[in-house]
Design a protein around this nucleic acid. Structure first.
Length: 493
RNA sequence: GCCCCCAUCGUCUAGUGGCCCAGGACAACACCCUUUCAAGGUGUAGAUCGCGGGUUCGAAUCCCGCUGGGGGUACCA
């Protein structure tokens, strides 16, 4: 399925928290398919559960989507021919349609209280029967029903599922899934507070919004007979059902909070790149060919094929994401990487909120020193810290290389300081030439001498290349740091 | 319990009846490069395609059973 009619897909989250990695993978499939077919990707807010509503969640979620670059063509803030895109603003639509089904007898009113429902389930379980509503109100006599109507007691509307026969779900990647109707429940479609449940609202909206492909997690397969039946009762044509495989945690269970970071903004905050995340996530449950893995967004759009989505779940492997992110960082141009690193340095107060052109220029000069050492953008903070601020203090243990003693180290640093003071040029090549000569003069190992110098100038045994680092700092700064490192020996003595 | 889904290296996957005693990637390990850390290069190890039956001249690929894993079983989505 390379071409075909433009598809309309949708992401329909409930505003109860952040966008979850698992949902995001589905969104990526949705978005890629819409783009691939030249169709539309919509965002719909499913805020039908007032108890779970979280203030600000919708904004959070839109922010995440936007910074991921997964812009919706219709939805809140964008508008479109099927507005509103927030279910709480579509109540009239659901009521009108629910009443239509009620009249046809496909829905029925239920006055059972939560207490009774619980009681029924308890009894059923005691008898080792599967739980579920006993359809008490479906079988009310006309008199009983009239009395209930007159009482004004709160009620719900339930779906009158066929009592026999089968309902089959035709799933694009799993084929036909057959369910026996007698095993299904009469689920609530309209709650007593007047809000629809997911089952009702999602189906109504998907149809009204002309969604052609419904991509959702495989956890929805179990309730799909209800959705299929709803389409039948309404007399609507079903969308293409695509139940995508779950994203799993390392233990093989569906990814959830207990597996650590599952909110996409956590990853964005750490400095994972949207392009890398998309590329990586697109490869869980889908693969292009025998060898290609790194793909640009455009290549992904071009190559993504909904019919090739695999039916089996896949583990979220952070190591591989790290690798992808590193590759994307290395493939980035220096100015762009500098731009993306900047907010992290500002947050760490290594650079001010407003950077001068000079500061930006220096940042760009620094980027090549750390580019191939980064896995996530926030790594730049630690990698670059010593280029912005001098080490707070020195620790003799790290200052003295393993194979040297304090006295030798001290004398080497003294000599280096002298040499650097007299060096006519501060270019990288000149620094290297002079310092290598020094190694010969003192008759020690290259690694030991350079390590002592590295710790003295950066405060750490791990740093960007020594001469580039020295060059990036200026001579005065390096000499000052050597001076302070040397002073450490005195205070320790 | 009942219903449903799934099943190729530790992990993500390629593979849709012969090109596969199964290819790539991550991770691991080794070596090379090297001033540290990385990156890069080369290589090694790792899956009798969950198991058992079929179908077929021929099966990872089709069918059945089993086992294992996952999901669902709400006036949550």
């Amino acid at each position: 399925m390379t071409t075909g009619a433009p598809a309309r897909t949708r992401f329909a989250p409930s505003p109860t928290g952040f966008v979850h990695i698992g949902s995001l993978r589905t969104v990526i499939f949705d978005w890629l398919w819409a783009k691939h077919t030249n169709g539309q990707f919509l965002l719909r807010i499913e805020d039908t559960d007032r108890k779970r509503y979280v203030e600000g969640a919708e904004e959070q979620l839109k922010d995440s989507l936007r910074t991921m670059g997964l812009q919706w063509d219709e939805g809140p803030d964008v508008d479109g021919p099927h507005a509103p895109y927030r279910q709480s603003e579509r109540l009239e639509i659901y009521h009108k349609l629910a009443n239509e089904l009620l009249e046809k007898g496909y829905l029925y009113k239920c006055w059972c209280t939560p207490e009774r429902l619980e009681q029924v389930n308890k009894e059923k379980q005691a008898r080792k029967q599967p739980p579920g509503y006993d359809r008490h109100c479906r079988h009310l006599s006309p008199e009983e029903r009239a009395a209930k109507e007159a009482s004004g007691e709160p009620y719900t509307m339930r779906l009158a599922m066929p009592l026999e026969g089968e309902t089959v779900l035709n799933d694009l990647i799993r084929g036909e899934v057959v369910f026996r109707n007698e095993l299904q429940n009469d689920l609530v479609m309209i709650k007593s507070d007047g809000f629809p449940t997911y089952h009702f609202a999602a189906i109504v909206d998907d149809h009204l919004m002309n969604i052609t492909h419904v991509l959702r997690g495989e956890e929805w397969i179990a309730t799909s007979p209800i959705h299929v039946t709803l389409y039948k009762y309404f007399g609507w044509e079903q969308p293409v059902w695509v139940h995508v495989p779950s994203v799993l945690g390392p233990d093989g269970k569906k990814l959830s909070k207990r597996h650590g970071d599952t909110a996409i903004n956590e990853y964005l905050d750490k400095g994972y790149l949207p392009e890398a995340i998309i590329n990586f996530l697109a490869l869980i449950g889908w693969g292009y060919d025998e060898t290609t893995e790194i793909m640009t967004i455009d290549e992904l759009i071009e190559r993504f094929d909904i019919t090739r989505i695999s039916p089996s779940g896949g583990v979220f492997n952070i190591d591989k994401l790290n690798r992808f992110n590193g590759i994307y960082i290395r493939n980035m141009s220096v100015p762009e990487l500098a731009e993306r690193i900047l907010p992290f340095l500002q947050k760490a107060e290594l650079l001010p909120a407003e950077v001068t052109p000079e500061q930006r220029k220096r940042l760009e000069a620094l980027v090549p020193l750390v580019q191939e050492r980064m896995v996530v953008l926030s790594d730049a903070v630690d990698l670059l810290r010593s280029l912005f601020v001098a080490p707070e203090s020195y620790d003799l243990k790290t200052l003295v290389p393993k194979r040297l003693d304090a006295e030798t180290t001290r004398s080497v640093l003294e000599k280096a300081k002298q040499a650097l003071t007299e060096l006519p040029s501060w270019e990288v090549a000149a620094l290297e030439e002079r310092l290598r000569a020094l190694v010969g003069e003192v008759g020690l190992k290259v690694g030991d001498v350079f390590m002592a110098l590295r710790v003295a100038t950066t405060g750490s045994t791990i740093s960007p290349p020594l001469f580039e680092t020295m060059h990036a700092l200026d001579r005065e700064e390096v000499l000052a740091r050597l001076e302070r490192a040397l002073a450490t020996f005195d205070s320790a003595a």
